[in-house]
């Protein structure tokens, strides 16, 4: 790691102020992405602002029709929360598949979404459930939040505070994990909320998480795995790397979408 200054934020306001003051700085949440990055010297911010101690940022609650999860809530808490398991079981199940137990004990939903790794799980849930990302400055619908590889709509000193997930009628998530890291080689999140049907794919797209309109249309008519028969996504625009070719990923999108739909139906 390069040298950096360390600040511990007391609350969100304090964190925002520290971020602004420190200039070239980064928020530190669970550190499960940031610390490995720093260790490999792939980043060298002058300062870290630790929001690990900010109480108001963590917690899970049902508010009206939304399941609200604080940004500092750990993956393990989401995976085991009774509230989440009841409201959106697919979301709890998704959290349970992230990395490994130690990563889940530390990593946070806010960090995952802010990082927007093209193979991360939570972005699929956000897009697949039509979530709203609440920040220290505004509310951003998921459709406008994820901007590309590791790119989001977040401004420099903007902090995610909560994620609001509309509770769907049903939802399902299926992923083909990379056997080493458990990141998604391809993961598909599907949900149905009245007439709003969503299919979001992670792990596959060159530009990160994306929706598949054709699948959504088919599922609107008939929310079942069978409805997806014969619908194929094209390899163009999908990732090709040492783990899988674009063709293989395209195939996996079809298979995972069906599994997700089957688990949701």
């Amino acid at each position: 790691m390069y040298k950096f200054a360390y600040h511990k934020a007391k609350n969100v306001k304090d964190a925002a102020a520290l971020l602004k003051k420190a200039g070239d700085s980064k928020l530190l949440a669970g550190g499960q992405t940031l610390i490995p990055t720093l260790k490999l010297r792939l980043a060298g911010p002058a300062a870290l602002v630790d929001i690990g101690g900010v109480k108001e940022l963590s917690g899970i609650a049902l508010k009206g029709k939304d399941l609200v999860i604080g940004a500092m809530t750990r993956h393990a808490e989401v995976a085991t929360s009774k509230v989440v398991r009841k409201a959106i079981p697919a979301l709890a199940a998704l959290a349970e598949t992230i990395g490994d137990p130690a990563v889940r004990n530390q990593g946070t939903i806010g960090g995952s979404i802010a990082n927007n790794d093209p193979a991360a799980d939570y972005p699929a849930a956000c897009l697949g459930l039509g979530a709203t990302i609440v920040t220290s400055k505004r509310k951003i619908p998921a459709d406008k939040f994820f901007k590309g590889l590791f790119e989001t709509a977040l401004g420099d000193d903007e902090i995610i505070t909560e994620v609001h997930f509309p509770v769907p009628k049903s939802a399902g998530y299926a992923k083909f994990p990379n056997p080493a890291s458990r990141y998604a080689l391809v993961g598909v999140f599907v949900s149905r909320n009245g007439s709003d049907v969503r299919v979001a794919v992670t792990g596959a797209g060159e530009g990160g998480v994306f929706r598949v309109a054709e699948m959504e249309k088919a599922l609107q008519k008939d929310f079942s795995a069978k409805a997806l028969d014969g619908i194929a996504v094209k390899p163009r625009g999908l990732n090709s790397d040492i783990h899988a070719s674009a063709e293989y990923r395209a195939h996996l999108v079809g298979v995972m979408a069906k599994r997700a739909a089957a688990s949701a139906a």
Binding site: K8, G31, D50, A76
Partner: peptide, 15 residues
């Protein structure tokens, strides 16, 4: 009480 990877946690985070 929680298992964590001590290589992925700053000492100051464990204050």
């Amino acid at each position: 009480g929680r298992a964590v990877k001590s290589c992925t946690l700053l000492a100051v985070q464990a204050d």
